[in-house]
Protein backbone atom coordinates (compact mmCIF):
# COMPACT_ATOMS: atom_id res chain seq x y z
CA UNK A 1 0.00 0.00 0.00
CA UNK A 2 1.37 3.40 -0.96
CA UNK A 3 1.56 6.24 1.56
CA UNK A 4 -0.91 8.33 -0.54
CA UNK A 5 -3.37 5.44 -0.45
CA UNK A 6 -2.99 5.19 3.37
CA UNK A 7 -3.45 8.93 3.71
CA UNK A 8 -6.60 8.92 1.56
CA UNK A 9 -8.11 6.08 3.58
CA UNK A 10 -7.62 8.21 6.68
CA UNK A 11 -9.19 11.22 4.91
CA UNK A 12 -12.29 9.44 3.57
CA UNK A 13 -14.26 10.03 6.80
CA UNK A 14 -13.42 13.73 6.76
CA UNK A 15 -14.31 13.87 3.06
CA UNK A 16 -17.71 12.29 3.72
CA UNK A 17 -18.51 14.77 6.49
CA UNK A 18 -18.31 17.47 3.80
CA UNK A 19 -16.40 20.02 5.85
CA UNK A 20 -12.97 19.31 4.38
CA UNK A 21 -10.73 21.94 2.79
CA UNK A 22 -10.60 22.32 -1.01
CA UNK A 23 -7.09 20.89 -0.95
CA UNK A 24 -8.24 17.68 0.80
CA UNK A 25 -11.29 17.41 -1.49
CA UNK A 26 -9.18 17.60 -4.65
CA UNK A 27 -6.62 15.17 -3.26
CA UNK A 28 -9.27 12.58 -2.29
CA UNK A 29 -11.24 12.90 -5.53
CA UNK A 30 -8.17 12.60 -7.70
CA UNK A 31 -7.10 9.43 -5.83
CA UNK A 32 -10.61 7.96 -5.97
CA UNK A 33 -10.61 8.19 -9.76
CA UNK A 34 -7.58 5.88 -9.84
CA UNK A 35 -8.09 3.56 -6.85
CA UNK A 36 -10.92 1.01 -6.88
CA UNK A 37 -10.17 -0.12 -3.32
CA UNK A 38 -10.75 3.38 -1.97
CA UNK A 39 -13.90 3.79 -4.09
CA UNK A 40 -15.25 0.58 -2.56
CA UNK A 41 -14.36 1.77 0.93
CA UNK A 42 -16.10 5.08 0.30
CA UNK A 43 -19.21 3.22 -0.91
CA UNK A 44 -19.34 1.02 2.21
CA UNK A 45 -18.82 3.95 4.58
CA UNK A 46 -21.49 6.00 2.75
CA UNK A 47 -23.98 3.18 3.24
CA UNK A 48 -23.04 2.78 6.89
CA UNK A 49 -23.61 6.49 7.50
CA UNK A 50 -27.18 6.18 6.24
CA UNK A 51 -28.11 3.88 9.12
CA UNK A 52 -29.86 6.13 11.59
CA UNK A 53 -30.21 5.93 15.32
CA UNK A 54 -33.73 6.26 16.80
CA UNK A 55 -34.19 9.39 18.87
CA UNK A 56 -35.24 8.63 22.46
CA UNK A 57 -37.03 11.99 22.60
CA UNK A 58 -36.66 15.39 24.26
CA UNK A 59 -37.78 14.13 27.65
CA UNK A 60 -34.71 11.90 27.81
CA UNK A 61 -32.30 14.58 26.61
CA UNK A 62 -33.73 17.23 28.93
CA UNK A 63 -33.76 15.12 32.07
CA UNK A 64 -30.52 13.15 31.73
CA UNK A 65 -28.10 15.98 32.70
CA UNK A 66 -30.10 16.79 35.83
CA UNK A 67 -30.45 13.10 36.70
CA UNK A 68 -26.69 12.62 36.46
CA UNK A 69 -26.03 15.69 38.64
CA UNK A 70 -28.48 14.58 41.32
CA UNK A 71 -27.34 10.93 41.37
CA UNK A 72 -23.67 11.92 41.32
CA UNK A 73 -24.32 14.50 44.08
CA UNK A 74 -25.26 11.69 46.42
CA UNK A 75 -21.68 10.49 46.13
CA UNK A 76 -19.46 13.51 45.54
CA UNK A 77 -15.97 12.83 44.17
CA UNK A 78 -13.37 12.22 46.83
CA UNK A 79 -15.79 12.50 49.75
CA UNK A 80 -15.02 9.99 52.52
CA UNK A 81 -17.86 7.77 53.58
CA UNK A 82 -17.96 4.94 56.10
CA UNK A 83 -20.65 3.28 54.00
CA UNK A 84 -18.23 3.18 51.07
CA UNK A 85 -15.45 1.89 53.29
CA UNK A 86 -17.41 -1.01 54.72
CA UNK A 87 -19.43 -1.99 51.69
CA UNK A 88 -16.60 -2.07 49.16
CA UNK A 89 -14.98 -5.51 48.95
CA UNK A 90 -11.34 -4.45 49.32
CA UNK A 91 -11.64 -2.18 52.36
CA UNK A 92 -14.01 -4.67 53.97
CA UNK A 93 -11.49 -7.51 53.49
CA UNK A 94 -8.74 -5.29 54.94
CA UNK A 95 -10.80 -4.50 58.04
CA UNK A 96 -11.57 -8.20 58.56
CA UNK A 97 -7.86 -9.07 58.17
CA UNK A 98 -6.81 -6.43 60.71
CA UNK A 99 -9.41 -7.66 63.21
CA UNK A 100 -8.27 -11.27 62.75
CA UNK A 101 -4.63 -10.27 63.27
CA UNK A 102 -5.56 -8.37 66.45
CA UNK A 103 -7.46 -11.37 67.81
CA UNK A 104 -4.59 -13.74 66.93
CA UNK A 105 -1.97 -11.49 68.54
CA UNK A 106 -4.08 -11.17 71.72
CA UNK A 107 -4.45 -14.95 71.96
CA UNK A 108 -0.72 -15.43 71.46
CA UNK A 109 0.16 -12.81 74.12
CA UNK A 110 -2.12 -14.55 76.58
CA UNK A 111 -0.34 -17.89 75.95
CA UNK A 112 3.09 -16.28 76.36
CA UNK A 113 2.00 -14.63 79.64
CA UNK A 114 0.70 -17.92 80.98
CA UNK A 115 3.99 -19.66 80.12
CA UNK A 116 6.08 -16.90 81.73
CA UNK A 117 4.21 -16.68 85.03
CA UNK A 118 3.74 -20.37 85.60
CA UNK A 119 7.40 -20.67 86.58
CA UNK A 120 7.59 -23.67 88.99
CA UNK A 121 10.48 -22.02 90.88
CA UNK A 122 8.57 -18.86 91.74
CA UNK A 123 7.56 -18.45 95.37
CA UNK A 124 3.82 -18.56 94.67
CA UNK A 125 4.09 -21.95 92.95
CA UNK A 126 6.33 -23.68 95.45
CA UNK A 127 5.26 -26.64 97.50
CA UNK A 128 5.77 -25.89 101.20
CA UNK A 129 4.36 -29.21 102.53
CA UNK A 130 7.83 -30.66 103.33
CA UNK A 131 8.88 -27.70 105.53
CA UNK A 132 9.08 -28.39 109.26
CA UNK A 133 8.45 -25.73 111.92
CA UNK A 134 12.15 -25.04 112.57
CA UNK A 135 12.79 -24.26 108.92
CA UNK A 136 9.97 -21.74 108.61
CA UNK A 137 11.72 -18.63 110.14
CA UNK A 138 14.81 -19.22 107.98
CA UNK A 139 12.63 -19.72 104.91
CA UNK A 140 10.66 -16.55 105.59
CA UNK A 141 13.91 -14.60 106.03
CA UNK A 142 15.25 -15.90 102.70
CA UNK A 143 11.96 -15.22 100.99
CA UNK A 144 12.03 -11.61 102.17
CA UNK A 145 15.53 -11.27 100.85
CA UNK A 146 14.50 -12.70 97.49
CA UNK A 147 11.32 -10.72 97.03
CA UNK A 148 12.63 -7.39 98.27
CA UNK A 149 16.06 -7.30 96.71
CA UNK A 150 17.23 -10.10 94.53
CA UNK A 151 14.64 -9.67 91.81
CA UNK A 152 14.95 -5.90 91.64
CA UNK A 153 17.26 -3.88 89.50
CA UNK A 154 18.33 -0.27 89.77
CA UNK A 155 17.71 2.17 86.92
CA UNK A 156 20.98 1.31 85.23
CA UNK A 157 19.98 -2.38 85.14
CA UNK A 158 22.39 -3.64 87.88
CA UNK A 159 21.10 -6.35 90.19
CA UNK A 160 21.47 -5.96 93.97
CA UNK A 161 23.30 -9.30 93.89
CA UNK A 162 26.37 -7.45 92.60
CA UNK A 163 26.14 -5.03 95.54
CA UNK A 164 25.95 -7.90 98.07
CA UNK A 165 29.04 -9.45 96.47
CA UNK A 166 31.07 -6.33 97.24
CA UNK A 167 30.10 -6.27 100.96
CA UNK A 168 32.49 -7.66 103.59
CA UNK A 169 31.40 -9.99 106.46
CA UNK A 170 30.75 -7.15 108.95
CA UNK A 171 28.68 -5.17 106.49
CA UNK A 172 26.67 -8.25 105.56
CA UNK A 173 25.92 -8.94 109.23
CA UNK A 174 24.64 -5.40 109.88
CA UNK A 175 22.64 -5.54 106.63
CA UNK A 176 21.06 -8.82 107.73
CA UNK A 177 20.11 -7.26 111.09
CA UNK A 178 18.52 -4.34 109.33
CA UNK A 179 16.50 -6.71 107.19
CA UNK A 180 15.32 -8.62 110.21
CA UNK A 181 14.10 -5.40 111.80
CA UNK A 182 12.36 -4.45 108.54
CA UNK A 183 10.66 -7.83 108.40
CA UNK A 184 9.51 -7.59 112.01
CA UNK A 185 8.12 -4.07 111.64
CA UNK A 186 6.55 -4.70 108.26
CA UNK A 187 8.69 -2.00 106.56
Amino acid sequence: MSSVHDEIQELINIYLKGNESKEIKDKVESHLRECKECRDELAVISELRKVEVPDPGDLFWNTLPKKIRITAGEEKPGRFSFKKLFFSPLPFASVVMILMLLILSQTRNKNINEETFNDPLSASNMDYSDLNEEDIPLFVNNLLLDENYSLHEDISGNSYHSEFASLDAKELESFNDALKNEGLHGG
Binding site: P56, W61, L64, K66, I68, R69, P77
Partner: peptide, 26 residues
Protein backbone atom coordinates in the same frame (compact mmCIF):
# COMPACT_ATOMS: atom_id res chain seq x y z
CA UNK B 1 -17.04 20.08 39.02
CA UNK B 2 -14.17 18.73 41.13
CA UNK B 3 -14.06 22.08 42.96
CA UNK B 4 -17.69 21.52 43.97
CA UNK B 5 -19.72 23.28 41.25
CA UNK B 6 -22.14 20.47 40.46
CA UNK B 7 -23.78 22.43 37.62
CA UNK B 8 -20.64 21.87 35.54
CA UNK B 9 -21.48 18.19 35.16
CA UNK B 10 -24.83 19.05 33.58
CA UNK B 11 -23.04 21.05 30.90
CA UNK B 12 -20.67 18.14 30.17
CA UNK B 13 -23.57 15.68 29.91
CA UNK B 14 -25.50 18.00 27.58
CA UNK B 15 -22.42 18.32 25.40
CA UNK B 16 -21.87 14.58 24.87
CA UNK B 17 -25.12 12.76 25.63
CA UNK B 18 -26.25 12.45 21.99
CA UNK B 19 -22.90 11.14 20.76
CA UNK B 20 -22.58 8.64 23.59
CA UNK B 21 -26.17 7.44 23.16
CA UNK B 22 -25.70 7.02 19.38
CA UNK B 23 -22.49 5.06 19.89
CA UNK B 24 -24.07 2.77 22.49
CA UNK B 25 -27.15 2.27 20.33
CA UNK B 26 -24.99 1.15 17.43
Amino acid sequence: YIAGETDAIEELVMRYQKQIYAFIYR
